[in-house]
Write a protein that binds this DNA or RNA. Structure first.
Lengths: 226, 226
DNA sequence: GTAAAAATTTTGAGTATTCAAAATTGTATG
DNA sequence: CATACAATTTTGAATACTCAAAATTTTTAC
């Protein structure tokens, strides 16, 4: 009736962060300190938890070397991320919540939803592939729809693109994106890029051009239109 | 952004059960053993928790005398019950889950929903007054729509009534109600009542008559039609 | 009115999670 | 290579919750 293995919300949370962080550092091994920082606990706490996770077969752990999800751990992490992203989309599409505020809501709900309810939500939404931020929603089996994106920090100049994904979760940044009309789906052209000044000049379709800092531009991913 | 006082799910759960039980025993004082039984913990655990709740001002506690919700405790309890019942209705109406299975689902979700999401669900459902079992949904302010009901164990014979409410949560019982066509909204007539044999003969509108035991009949509440 | 039964509380202990601060290890530097 | 610095791990302790079993109180029964 509910989830397969029944991990605690805390454990699910560690696994989720672990997965996200591992995508960044592609050698796969994550220092425990980094994990601690993004879960929001002290380093010692993370060490303790990592040892627990290792005993449960969810991660590989090399003392002073780092942590890495096992395939079992990754499977669970993808389950949590699937729940999180489906909930986000549900909150935006069905309950009319704002794009920028659903992350925190989903954070709590992702640990309380049974497989059955999740399946119904999935069906109601028409088995969507992407959440409101453009992040891919893993399938129940664990498959993640992948697409190659470029960011506004690196794509070609004077070419039409479509914003596909915004890789940030904090409400302030997302509200800015909204105010600037750069939400997923918007057509944009990069008019200039100044690597010295670290700025990018972007023009959303039928709107005035605007300037973004390079780090911000790197969080906005685009694809070719059509 | 979320709930007012932030009680733990465990505490919310105790308060909810306390409220339900208090409705039964109207002197208001509930023995801790009874509370323990319905929360599903050992008596000692309930005693410990009750002392914690008393310190937090949520209950009055007389050692060896019993427990009673304070008005603060009742306010919180009604909040939990409101969430629970709105979720149940939402799951049935919007996600097409079965009447008989939503209780357990709501049990988990009632502790994870923010006020904001709850308000949206309330709006989506059209500010309903009753959940799928006919139980009243407390308003955000704490007001509970009350109606006087009679049960099939005590109502007049040969008079038309409408099933308004089924005061049970276990799936097996509810599935039986469904199979027997006695879900809320159904018109029924009690054709006979045998207090010695402890049975009631009920005829749902345009269906053959059927027999119920008295305790089962007492859980099915009816009102005058119209 | 005392003994047995029932309910309740207390005690001691365990799990899951966390922190602060001390100890350890590894790395980089001169 | 020794030393200083940073990261990590260990240690000791706290909170929230739970149980089993012992101790206590109340009720019931004779």
């Amino acid at each position: 009736m509910s989830r397969s293995a029944e991990l605690t919300p805390t454990v699910e949370n560690y696994l989720k962060h672990l997965f996200h962080q591992q995508q960044q550092s592609p050698d796969g091994w994550l220092p425990t300190g980094r994990l601690a920082a993004c879960v929001g606990v002290t380093p010692g706490t993370a060490t303790t938890m990592v040892k627990t996770l290792a005993e449960a077969g969810l991660v590989d752990y090399e003392p002073r070397g780092g942590v890495r999800l096992t395939s079992a751990g990754e499977r669970h992490a993808l389950g949590v991320i699937r729940r999180h992203r489906l909930i986000e989309l549900f909150l935006v599409r069905e309950l009319d919540l704002d794009w920028s505020e659903v992350h925190d809501e989903a954070e709590r709900l992702e640990h309380a939803l049974s497989d059955k309810v999740l399946e119904r939500i999935d069906r109601l939404l028409g088995y969507p592939q992407f959440d409101p931020h453009g992040d891919p929603i893993p399938r129940a089996g664990g498959h993640v729809p992948t697409t190659e994106y470029q960011s506004l920090a690196e794509c070609a100049l004077h070419r039409a693109f479509v914003v596909a994904r915004v890789t940030a979760q904090d409400a302030v940044f997302l509200q800015m994106i909204q105010r600037l009309h750069l939400v997923p789906g918007t057509r944009v052209v990069v008019e200039a890029r100044d690597t010295a000044a670290q700025t990018v000049t972007v023009r959303p379709r039928s709107r005035p051009a605007l300037n973004l800092g390079l780090p911000a531009a790197a969080k906005i991913l685009v694809t070719a239109p059509g």
